[in-house]
Amino acid sequence: TTVHIGNVTYHFDNPEEAVKWAKEMAEKLGLRIEIHGDTIRVE
């Protein structure tokens, strides 16, 4: 599972961890997340 924040990509072996981490980052940055299969974007 990959999480994209701007130009930076993070890789997670556990999809649930990826979603949890992306949600925390989105809250901190005042952004929202979009999930497309195994790709998560924070925008």
Rank of each mutant, 00 (worst) to 15 (best):
residue 28 K to P: 04
residue 15 P to I: 13
residue 33 I to M: 12
residue 12 F to L: 01
residue 28 K to V: 08
residue 38 D to N: 15
residue 26 A to C: 06
residue 7 N to Y: 11
residue 5 I to S: 02
residue 18 A to Y: 02
residue 22 A to I: 03
residue 27 E to R: 09
residue 34 E to S: 14
residue 20 K to D: 06
residue 36 H to T: 11
residue 36 H to D: 14
residue 9 T to G: 05
residue 1 T to M: 15
residue 29 L to F: 12
residue 26 A to D: 01
residue 24 E to W: 15
residue 27 E to S: 07
residue 39 T to D: 07
residue 39 T to M: 09
residue 5 I to T: 02
residue 13 D to N: 12
residue 11 H to Q: 08
residue 2 T to R: 09
residue 8 V to G: 07
residue 2 T to S: 08
residue 43 E to C: 09
residue 41 R to S: 07
residue 25 M to E: 05
residue 14 N to K: 08
residue 43 E to P: 05
residue 18 A to S: 02
residue 26 A to R: 02
residue 8 V to Q: 14
residue 37 G to M: 04
residue 37 G to T: 04
residue 33 I to L: 13
residue 37 G to C: 05
residue 5 I to Q: 02
residue 32 R to W: 10
residue 32 R to N: 14
residue 37 G to V: 03
residue 32 R to D: 12
residue 7 N to D: 11
residue 40 I to D: 01
residue 2 T to N: 08
residue 16 E to C: 08
residue 15 P to S: 13
residue 27 E to Y: 08
residue 26 A to P: 00
residue 21 W to G: 00
residue 10 Y to E: 03
residue 8 V to T: 12
residue 22 A to T: 02
residue 2 T to I: 11
residue 42 V to A: 04
residue 30 G to H: 09
residue 26 A to S: 06
residue 14 N to S: 12
residue 25 M to S: 03
residue 15 P to W: 15
residue 30 G to S: 05
residue 1 T to Y: 13
residue 5 I to V: 09
residue 26 A to V: 03
residue 34 E to Y: 15
residue 30 G to Y: 04
residue 7 N to E: 09
residue 9 T to D: 06
residue 9 T to M: 12
residue 27 E to V: 07
residue 16 E to P: 04
residue 25 M to N: 03
residue 18 A to W: 02
residue 32 R to G: 13
residue 38 D to F: 05
residue 26 A to M: 03
residue 31 L to G: 15
residue 33 I to V: 14
residue 2 T to Q: 08
residue 17 E to T: 10
residue 19 V to R: 09
residue 43 E to N: 10
residue 38 D to Y: 04
residue 39 T to I: 14
residue 22 A to W: 02
residue 29 L to H: 14
residue 36 H to Q: 13
residue 17 E to L: 11
residue 29 L to D: 05
residue 38 D to C: 06
residue 24 E to H: 12
residue 30 G to R: 04
residue 37 G to P: 04
residue 38 D to A: 11
residue 38 D to W: 03
residue 39 T to C: 13
residue 39 T to R: 05
residue 15 P to G: 10
residue 33 I to H: 03
residue 20 K to T: 09
residue 6 G to Y: 10
residue 4 H to A: 08
residue 20 K to N: 09
residue 32 R to S: 15
residue 1 T to S: 07
residue 37 G to S: 04
residue 17 E to G: 04
residue 4 H to Q: 13
residue 10 Y to L: 07
residue 20 K to F: 07
residue 13 D to H: 09
residue 35 I to Q: 06
residue 26 A to H: 02
residue 42 V to L: 15
residue 25 M to H: 04
residue 28 K to T: 08
residue 13 D to C: 12
residue 23 K to Q: 13
residue 24 E to F: 15
residue 2 T to F: 11
residue 9 T to A: 12
residue 7 N to R: 12
residue 15 P to T: 12
residue 17 E to Y: 09
residue 16 E to K: 10
residue 10 Y to N: 03
residue 23 K to N: 09
residue 3 V to Q: 00
residue 12 F to Q: 00
residue 30 G to P: 02
residue 21 W to R: 01
residue 14 N to G: 05
residue 13 D to L: 11
residue 35 I to M: 08
residue 14 N to E: 08
residue 13 D to E: 12
residue 17 E to F: 08
residue 43 E to I: 15
residue 11 H to F: 14
residue 3 V to W: 01
residue 36 H to A: 10
residue 14 N to L: 07
residue 27 E to K: 09
residue 1 T to D: 02
residue 9 T to K: 13
residue 21 W to K: 02
residue 2 T to M: 09
residue 41 R to N: 07
residue 31 L to M: 15
residue 42 V to W: 02
residue 16 E to S: 10
residue 35 I to Y: 11
residue 40 I to G: 01
residue 34 E to G: 04
residue 27 E to D: 13
